[in-house]
Amino acid sequence: MVAVTRMVVRRLLIGVFVMWGAASVIFVIVRAAPGDPAAVFLGPDADKEQIARLTAALGLDKPLFEQYVRYLGDVLRLDFGESYRLGRPAMEAVFERLPATIDLTLTATAVAVAVGLALGLVAGSRPGGAVDRVVSAVTIALQSFPTFWVGIMLVLTFALGLRLLPSAGVGTPAHLVLPAVTLAFPFTAIVARLTRSSVAEAMREPYVQTARSKGLSERQVLLGHALRNSLIPVVTIVGLQMGALMGGAVIVENVFAWPGLGSLVVDAVANRDYAVVQAVTLLIAGVVMVLNIVADVLYVRLDPRIRTEVAS
């Protein structure tokens, strides 16, 4: 366990540099994008002098390098700047929206892992069989549909057509269903395909033959012997994909008017609200980093061979 702790500490140290990189890249990108925050905020009627005054107040008249150094210094003191549009600390606005996005991504992950694992298991236990071919076709479809289109189709079918579920907004658990399912679509396909190939490979291993020679049923062989070894790559991908899911959430949240980080950041980009864009980016980078570390720890827990490699 000491070895795992050391691995986590090492990964966190590397993570500091990753965060620095993410902060720097987004700092440059928001400023490289066309559009002037002061001009956007003041609107088309503002005169040059007003714009210049606001630009100076925001500190955007300083040389880029000076802005960068001050920004990094602020971040190190956990000051993520003020949103000029909202008139309050950017991170405060981000944390206000965070729970909604967490609800959405966790639900989508749960759906994707449950459905993806189940599909992958039945398909992989008999590769080339009828079920396998159906699952393959379904997963290719799930992965190919663009998220916004899936969202609109689900709304048309279940909200407007069948009137089973609300089409947008928040409030009840029912509001969560369509956005979470939409977000889960491509993720489910990834989990299913990976589980399928991983299970199919495990079922060809000699230890599966040993398990059969013990008189176990095919179900016991699959769940007791093949599954555990097939989970190792799946866990890593789930960890990595959960980070990507936060990116996908941006689109889904806008389709379903879901008040999470996605809609916040789209708003912030449109209004050149640098502080909010930077704060969201840093938060997502941090979450992805933590998820990757969690995936690595699980990976080590699942595979005893890596457990000792880490220790040595």
Partner: peptide, 22 residues
């Protein structure tokens, strides 16, 4: 399932591959 393991069992050529690694 009642024959294998209980009546007839088998050992294989490569014991490392024949044992579940995890």
């Amino acid at each position: 399932r009642r024959v294998r393991g209980h009546q007839i069992s088998m050992i294989f050529q490569d014991p490392l591959a024949a044992l579940n690694p995890s």
